[in-house]
């Protein structure tokens, strides 16, 4: 059925466009968009410290380590969260999971939603992270996989490397490829729908660990 359109579709399209043209008959004046808002953080701000602080503000757990300590940190997070079976998307570096205590489950061939729903946790990399807002962005690239992998299991571990962390939202957008499906994640799933009291954990992963890999030295 993809692509099937009702018979009067061209007429509807033409009518909407004609209505818009008629509504703009006064030809509103054009003016440049002022862009003198902040694009970068001041030089004295340490983006890694700020990222760690802002992620923790969302009540997710931040583990800071370096390349040498990464495998042990990931293993400890997996064990602490009681993850027995772990979804491992294609492209995760072998070194991250050198000490992994959980059974690893790949997504090739793709897992069904029922299978995924029955798995404890997922580990993922990311495309970019934003210090100012405590956000990491998944773009289904290598080490991340399909969007659903980071959605159904209740525990999510995201590894962020120092070179992926930028200061601001404008810097992050400049690094991202619009055509890729993206999920921007800022803390665990949450709601404020009951008396505007924030509760962590509704439909997405309720437990979020972010492992931040500092620059060497």
């Amino acid at each position: 059925m993809t692509g099937k359109v009702p018979a009067d579709a061209p007429a509807r399209r033409a009518e909407v466009l004609a209505r818009i043209a008629a509504a703009l008959v006064d030809r509103p004046a054009s003016s440049a968009v002022p862009r003198d808002y902040q694009h970068r953080l001041p030089d004295h701000v340490d983006v890694l410290d700020l990222f760690a602080e802002r992620v923790a503000d969302y009540r997710s757990t931040v583990h800071r380590t370096d390349a040498a300590g990464l495998a042990a940190t990931v293993a400890a997070a997996i064990a602490d969260r009681g993850i027995r079976r772990l979804v491992v998307p294609g492209g995760i570096p072998e070194g991250w999971l050198a000490a992994c205590p959980a059974e690893r489950i790949g997504d090739d061939p793709p897992l069904s939603v029922e299978e995924l729903d029955g798995i404890d946790g997922t580990i993922t990399g990311c495309a970019v992270a934003i210090a100012e807002t405590g956000t990491f962005v998944l773009d289904a690239g290598s080490g991340q996989g399909r969007r659903v992998l980071s959605l159904l299991p209740d525990r999510l571990i995201c590894v962020v490397t120092a070179d992926q962390v930028v200061g601001t939202v404008p810097e992050a957008l400049a690094r991202l490829e619009p055509a890729r499906p993206q999920t921007w994640v800022s803390g665990p799933s949450a709601t404020s729908d009951i008396e505007l009291e924030r509760i962590e954990g509704v439909h997405g992963p309720r437990i979020l660990d972010v492992v931040l890999v500092d620059r060497p030295g």
Partner: peptide, 13 residues
């Protein structure tokens, strides 16, 4: 500062 999830997609992946 940012909402927990923002999804972006372009057509079909």
């Amino acid at each position: 500062r940012m909402n927990p999830y923002t999804s972006m997609w372009t057509g079909v992946t």
